[in-house]
Every structure is written in C-alpha cells, then in structure tokens.
C-alpha cells in the first residue's frame, strides 16, 4: 500500500494565530506554539509527525503562510 508522508514549513513571522488551520487538520498534527512571533501572535507549528501532506491547513490559511511537502514511501 502506497503511503505518503508530509511536512509543512510555516512562515512564523506572517502567522497571525487565528487557529483556523487547527480545525482543518485531519490528523491533529498542528497546534499553537507557546512562543510568540515578532508581532506577539502565537504561531502554529507541527507537534508530531502524522502529517500526510493533505494541504488542508494551507488552503484555509487566510494569510497563506504554510508550504506543504509530500513524499510517497
């Protein structure tokens, strides 16, 4: 069975911490950080490696801060 593995890169300084992406993630891979960025927003980040690269978080992100990568294994 072909499996996929994904990962995301977040543009931390542009993230406004709206948390819309967290609801959209089917594998609950992302969560808000405890740290804040330069503007004082908590930013989203990968908390474990269940990401499948489905791009859901990236397409609902209003600020387009997420880049999604996916490989077949």
């Amino acid at each position: 069975m072909a499996k996929v593995k994904g990962d995301i890169i977040v543009d931390i300084e542009r993230c406004k911490g709206c948390e819309v992406c967290i609801d959209a993630c089917p594998t609950h891979t992302i969560a808000m950080s405890e740290d804040v960025n330069g503007k004082g927003y908590h930013y989203m980040q990968n908390v474990h490696d269940a990401c499948t690269g489905c791009t859901n978080c990236a397409i609902v992100c209003p600020d387009g801060v997420i880049t999604v990568y996916r490989v077949k294994i």
Partner: peptide, 22 residues
C-alpha cells in the same frame, strides 16, 4: 516535494486583515 505553496501572484506584504478573516 512541494504540493502547496502560496501563489507568486500574492505579494510578500503582510495582509492588513484581522487574524482569520476570509
């Protein structure tokens, strides 16, 4: 391996909208 990336037609300026705005 990139499957999704912000389109190049959006400039790199930080959007002036509130967090979560459609």
């Amino acid at each position: 391996n990139i499957v999704y990336k912000k389109t190049g037609l959006m400039t790199d300026k930080v959007l002036s909208y509130c967090p979560g705005c459609g």
